[in-house]
Design a protein around this nucleic acid. Structure first.
Ligand SMILES: [Mn+2]
Ligand SMILES: [Mn+2]
Ligand SMILES: [Zn+2]
Ligand SMILES: [Zn+2]
Lengths: 143, 143
DNA sequence: AGACATTTGATAATGATTATCATTATAGAT
DNA sequence: ATCTATAATGATAATCATTATCAAATGTCT
């Protein structure tokens, strides 16, 4: 995985630096979590104490372009990043999220069930590349 | 519609002011559009030239709380507001959006097709209140 | 090791949204 | 219609996340 991404970087004339490796490791170690740039910074400093917030933003952005990370807005209007389900290989679709309106917990839903709807939309002349589906409600604890 | 909302305001000890009425009229006249606060300000000033941006934000926020408006982030990381499909009455669900990655056009999808998935999720102990589904791809013109 | 382009970190700038506060307007009581 | 209490407004400052700038440091290739 890490090796695959290093190769991808080189193909695009990007260098593999200590900081980029650290950010990547943070994301790999936190699969299933949805981290803000500040949270990534905090974790990255454990390994690379000197790393700056600008580098974290730049690296997250680059990994998002490369489709290693998925970037989206949850509540609070700031971006959060997570590993793509199948980071490294050609990416198609993304799992869904349930956000608890009381405790803020984020639960992932793996079932897709959108292909029917996507087919209907494509039959009207669109080409669908990806989707982003969030459910808002209450988790079992807060219901 | 406007009357219904005025009554709702009163029930919550809010006053109906010229500015609130203007913002509401802007939103009613632009059903199907997705306006930023700045865009609402611009349109509102046609009728109430002195209105300030802070009042626009406050009013949009209030109407969102009251479930007259729906607030969401499209591309660019800023909030946009639109009338709820059935603004005024008890609100359940919301239509979906297709965002063209080339020209930015936003198309609405009325078909729901999520009830199956929602039922499956609720059978796992969640309570679903609303959802937000966006498709990313290319519109017929840009495909 | 040396050359050169890329990357980094500190910090300034930006842009959207929210908070502050003195002034003004609204709704209900008189 | 006037008065009063309270809520709302507009100007502007503050905040917060993100992006831009730039001199110094680093990675890659020879
Ligand atoms: Mn996720
Ligand atoms: Mn819409
Ligand atoms: Zn919860
Ligand atoms: Zn298009």
């Amino acid at each position: 995985m890490k090796k695959k991404i290093t190769i991808k970087l080189k193909q695009n004339d990007y260098k593999m630096t200590e900081q980029r490796e650290t950010v990547l490791e943070v994301m790999l170690k936190n699969r299933g979590k949805h981290l803000s740039a500040e949270e990534v910074l905090e974790k990255a400093r454990k390994k690379s104490p000197g790393i700056g917030i600008a580098t974290v933003y730049r690296t997250l952005e680059k990994l998002t372009e490369m489709e290693v990370l998925y970037k989206t807005v949850f509540e609070g209007g700031k971006f959060r990043y997570e590993l793509y389900d199948d980071a490294g290989s050609k990416q198609q679709h993304h799992h869904h999220h349930i956000i608890c309106l009381k405790c803020g917990k984020i639960t992932e839903v793996q079932e897709d069930l959108l292909s029917g709807l996507e087919q209907k939309i494509e039959s009207q002349g669109f080409k669908i590349i990806d989707h982003d589906l969030k459910f808002f409600g209450y988790c079992p604890n807060c219901k």
